[in-house]
Amino acid sequence: MTGLIILSTFIAVIVVAFAVVVQKSLPDAIILFMGVSLGSVVLFFVFQAPDVAMTEAVIGAGISALIFLMALKHFKEER
């Protein structure tokens, strides 16, 4: 059962990461990038690395996506 969850999360992370690359709209890509981070959080936690999971949740899914969004806003304003 755990193996199934791990494997499905692996596949989901890879699929979402692929979706980030082919995505045309940048905000959507950023939100999907957050999804990749969330999947990685689950994987880190399952592989007994709660410290790394916490870092990924805070930095990957939280602040970096928000910084990307803010940068995108400024970029759109300047164009």
Partner: peptide
């Protein structure tokens, strides 16, 4: 909490600092 309990539970200075920054955000 995450910052002060870094030596007892998962987390620590980096994570706690970024959580505080997200509160400021």
């Amino acid at each position: 909490y995450v910052m002060i309990y870094g030596h007892l539970s998962p987390g620590g200075g980096f994570q706690g600092g970024v959580i505080i920054a997200s509160g400021v955000l």
